[in-house]
Write a protein that binds this DNA or RNA. Structure first.
Length: 946
RNA sequence: GGGGGUGUGGCGGAACUGGCAGACGCGCUAGAUUUAGGAUCUAGUGCCCUUACGGGCGUGCAGGUUCAAUUCCUGUCACCCCCA
């Protein structure tokens, strides 16, 4: 009696696949190709989470099935291994992050291999491999060497940048500086969130109310020389190329919103002396709108130039370059104080709608070019220096933030857009489209038309022009960390050891620039990166007799993940980052599956790099990921939770609310209550909610929480493999529900799919004779009912129906229903006393992408010697599926009253006669008048009667 | 506040272009079998009324369109995710 024993057969097949290199990527593509890619993981010390195998199993099913249809498959796995946790662990233990990183990778590989994924492990890469870093640095140099030519709409070599004569005349240093202004990778003084206590720069998301989220240390906004990526140059293409991708509308929209393309107008407001206004107007009407504003105007960007007549004040960002000029002497103290407060806030906090908007009056006024009105100029931090021109015209009647600000400081509100009739939503502040009022000659013009007209007038008068603006900012690319890629950049030094300003890339032949050996990684409280502590040998190289200092910032974690999918194609090439011929064969990625948390940044950055490499002729695909799917989150098991007062009395969920810091309180008494987990046996359903069995007045909650260590509901995939087997885990995660939906874990569901596999095993293997032998000695004997005889009609129908459903469900990535169909197959054949091999064998092939180990084992039990990984995928015969008779429901007034068993294709007339002849129908229709009869052949008959 | 998504039995979820709501699995109930079972097999299982026959109600809620609505339209509520 040999039972199904995954612990025994799974390692054996994993070994077989490894020994035979079963999943080696084919060297050439004869026919179709599939590049199935998972978002590669960060190898954390925690090991694999159940969320990982969800997406990985999905791509594995697609990859395995594709191989069986004669498709050449590239299905690789690697590791995104730079990052903060490894560095923090290194600081804590004073060991090199490479050591812990490699250990974690080893652990991840072992965990992934025990799940039986069909990766080509010969292609495993890590972003931290020196041979990988080499090419990340090489790509950086490409970006450094590229400028964006707006005429050709593509990135081109910096050597092709036209240099104005006066720059050439000023000498080579001037030329170099000019070029630097155009490079896609460039340096600038950026305002960063510097936290002295943590010794690092923080992302905007890591700062709350001027304090670091971790540790609550003060954070300063401080200008530091940083590397940036000119991603804004590609904003248009990054947006428009989304159209041809097979991505969900949701993710496309996220990307579009992040890019945030808006069209509006730039308008100049005169701020010079009043007696010069007329002269200025005249000059402008002749010269037109200048590219850069002069000192006598304040330039704003607005998406609503149609509301110009409603501008009642102006706002400039606290960092705006005209702040000094515009501040009147009597206001200077107030302005200075305000600027200091604003400097401590992050952009995020400044835009927070819940916080009252603040500002300060500069004491100056500007002239509205459309009506000559003189309006006050304010400074407020709700305007960001980085967006548009860093200054706005405020139209409180039609912009929510302006309105809020105007209310606070009692500023004038002039309504200039009449909402459409019946629209009462914006009674005080209407932000939608309507018709113009209080707008001089434009009164009565609809908003959209007004926008075009005003643009024309602004252009004519030289006071404005239409303009496109993006929310997307250039990408802050440097980090003050140790565990990242060093920049392949050298700063030239003069004889005194000061930087001359000349910056060169490291020669390609000198790549990679390796990380230096450091004695400690501890932060030192100054914003210099840890690499500043490297030995002079590393820090001060000499090139062509000149002394240089290395760039000591490192690249962000995004860098490695921006191009790893290209390296998988050609992972060990020493000559180029990817062979162009191979790239042409395999790109784009045909299926990319991963978490939704990467829907914006990772995908945007990777697409940007890809386009630059495309423009520079290194790639032949403009977009990297043709089809993208975001898997849903797997939550913890459903839990019943109730609330208790400190004295232990139950509180119904009706009386529980949350206070500001999210702790639970009694809604009326405002006293704290604690959340208590409740045994499902103590809960019962009452109406549309759950209550305590002991006291039905106490409502309790039933929901699934995110898996977290704190809650103690984390499921470890390795434990599931130990207990149920890898095939069961794979099958369970796919059976749980639709891939893209988040869904709760339920351990008893795993035993459900395990039961199914047990059943499949017993279909083929005799399990009830074997005597006293211990399990290891037992042979798998084919079940007595397995036969070489031909299948009967019903068996064939079940088989072909299963083939059809499973095949189309895999195409739709609807794995849960595919598994349900296979369960039906197993249930049916369990009841069959003869089980033709001609049905069982195709079934095993269908099962194999989902549960590869058991499928291989049973395939060999049936006498096959080779792996089934390249057996032909079964095909179905539609004519064998169709049943000859169908059951047609008969309804009266849309309610089913009877059923007819008729041959498929029975005509309408005949159906009607048969239905009318039906005893029950006849009785119910007796004495009634049939008003209408609806008949859909093979589907239903419906009588409308009175 | 803005955007996206989801609401179907005790639970996870099926249901193609509007056409038999609840496939499949879990759980539960009963029976068979076994030395035993967290094993296997068989049957049942949306809710309510009824001994039964049978009937009524049911896809978050309220309306609408239709012979027919989980599916289409209008409004509304709840939860989840992302952004601010």
């Amino acid at each position: 009696m040999a039972r199904y024993n995954p612990q025994q057969i799974e390692p054996r097949w994993q070994q077989y696949w490894a020994d035979n290199k079963t999943f080696k990527t084919p060297a050439s593509i004869d026919d179709k190709k599939l590049y199935a890619l998972d978002m590669f993981p960060y190898p954390s010390g925690e090991g694999l989470h159940v969320g990982h195998p969800e997406g990985y199993t999905a791509t594995d099913i697609v990859a395995r099935q594709a191989r069986m249809t004669g498709t050449a498959v590239l299905h690789p796995m690697g590791f995104d291994a730079f990052g903060l946790p490894a560095e923090e662990y290194a600081i804590k233990t004073n060991t090199h992050p490479r050591i812990s990183t490699n250990k974690n990778i080893e652990n991840f590989v072992a965990q992934l291999q025990e799940l039986g994924f069909s990766y080509d492990w010969d292609r495993q890469i890590s972003t931290t491999d020196e041979n990988y870093v080499r090419w990340t640095q090489w790509i950086f140099l490409q970006l450094f060497d590229t400028w964006y030519d707006p005429d050709q709409n593509k990135g081109r070599p910096i050597s092709a940048l036209p240099i104005p004569d006066e720059v050439t005349a000023a000498g080579p240093v001037a030329v170099a500086e000019y070029q630097d202004e155009f490079r896609l990778a460039y340096q600038t003084n950026a305002l960063v969130n510097w936290c002295p206590n943590l010794g690092t720069v923080l992302a905007n998301e890591e700062v709350k109310d001027g304090l670091s989220e971790r540790g609550n240390h003060p954070v300063e906004r401080r200008p530091l020389k940083q590397w940036m990526m000119r991603i804004t140059a590609y904003a248009d293409r990054l947006e428009s190329d989304l159209d041809d991708l097979d991505w969900s509308d949701g993710v496309k929209k996220l990307q579009k919103d992040w890019i945030g393309r808006s069209t509006g107008a730039e308008v100049d407001f005169f701020i010079g002396a009043a007696d010069q206004l007329e002269g200025w107007k005249q000059t402008r009407s002749q010269s037109g709108f200048p590219r850069k504003p002069g000192a006598d105007v304040l330039r704003v960007y607005t998406t609503r130039p149609d509301t110009l007549f409603g501008a009642t004040y102006m706002v400039i960002a606290p960092e705006h370059e005209l702040v000094q000029t515009l501040t009147a002497p009597q206001q200077s103290d107030a302005v200075e104080a305000y600027r200091e407060t604003a400097a401590r806030k992050s952009d995020r906090d400044r835009q927070d709608d819940r916080v009252k908007k603040t500002g300060v009056f500069t004491g100056s006024y500007a002239i509205n070019p459309v009506n000559g009105a003189s309006i006050p100029i304010w400074i407020a931090d709700y305007v960001l220096a980085g967006y548009g021109t860093g200054a706005i015209m405020a139209v409180p009647a039609h912009d929510a933030r302006d309105f809020q600000f105007a209310q606070t400081y009692d500023l004038e509100v002039i309504q200039v857009v009449q909402p459409p009739q019946g629209d009462t939503k914006g009674a005080q502040c209407f932000t939608g489209h309507g018709t113009a009022i209080n707008s001089g000659p434009f009164d009565g013009t609809p908003t959209a038309e007004f926008k075009t007209k005003i643009a024309q007038q602004l252009t004519q008068s030289g006071t404005g022009k239409t303009a496109v603006n993006y929310k997307l900012r250039d990408w802050l690319f440097s980090r003050q960390r140790f565990w990242g890629e060093p920049f392949p950049i050298l700063h030239q030094l003069d004889d005194e050891g000061n930087k001359t300003g000349v910056v060169i890339g490291v020669a390609e032949t000198d790549l990679p620039v390796k990380l230096p050996e450091l004695k400690d990684f501890k932060p030192h409280g100054r914003p210099e990166p840890p690499l500043e502590k490297a030995d002079d040998d590393w820090l001060y190289p000499v090139v062509d007799g000149k002394r240089y200092k290395r760039e000591t910032n490192t690249m962000p974690q995004w860098a490695g993940s921006c191009w790893y999918f290209l390296r998988f194609i050609d992972p060990s090439n020493e000559e180029v980052f990817v062979d162009p011929e191979l790239e042409k064969q395999w790109m784009p990625v045909d299926l990319y599956i991963g978490g939704a948390e990467h829907a914006v940044l990772h995908l945007l950055y990777a697409r940007f790099w890809h386009k630059v490499l495309f423009d520079r002729g290194h790639l032949c695909t403009p977009e990297p990921f043709q089809k993208l799917v975001n898997q849903g989150m797997i939550l913890g098991e459903n839990e019943f939770t109730g609330f208790q007062t400190p004295s232990g009395n139950w509180v119904s969920t009706d009386f529980v609310s949350q206070d500001e810091d999210k702790s639970y309180i009694h809604a009326t008494e405002k006293t704290p209550v604690t959340q208590v987990s409740i045994d499902p046996a103590d809960a019962e359903k009452s109406g549309d909610h759950f209550v305590l069995t002991v006291d039905p007045n106490i409502k309790i909650a039933n929901k699934a929480f995110k898996m977290s260590k704190a809650r103690g509901n984390v499921v470890n995939p390795s434990e599931v493999v130990q207990q149920y087997g890898a095939d069961s885990l794979r099958l369970y995660e796919m059976f749980l529900g639709p891939l893209e939906q988040s869904k709760p874990w339920n351990t008893s569901g795993v035993s459900g799919v395990r039961n199914f596999l047990d059943r499949v095993w017993r279909l083929i293997v005799e399990t009830d004779n074997g005597g006293d032998k211990n399990e290891a000695q037992e042979e798998n004997i084919i079940h007595a009912s397995v036969t070489d005889n031909a299948a009967n009609e019903e068996q064939l129908r079940v088989l072909h129906q299963t083939i059809k459903s499973v095949t189309t469900d895999i195409e739709k990535l609807s794995f849960n229903t595919a598994i349900a169909r296979m369960m039906e197959f197993a249930n049916f054949f369990t009841k069959q006393t003869t089980r033709p091999k001609s049905c069982l064998e195709p079934f095993l092939l269908l099962l194999s992408p989902f549960a590869p180990h058991i499928a291989e084992e049973l395939w060999s039990v049936l006498g096959h010697e080779k792996t089934l990984a390249y057996e032909a995928w079964p095909e179905f015969d539609e004519s064998l599926i169709i049943e000859s008779t169908v059951e047609v429901p008969v309804q009266i007034m849309g309610k089913i009253k009877s059923r007819l068993n008729v041959p498929r294709g029975t005509s309408k007339d005949e159906l009607e006669n048969l239905a009318l002849a039906d005893e029950k129908i006849a009785r119910l229709l007796d004495g009634k008048k049939i008003i209408k009869t609806v008949i859909v052949p093979d589907r239903l008959v419906n009588f409308v009667a009175k």
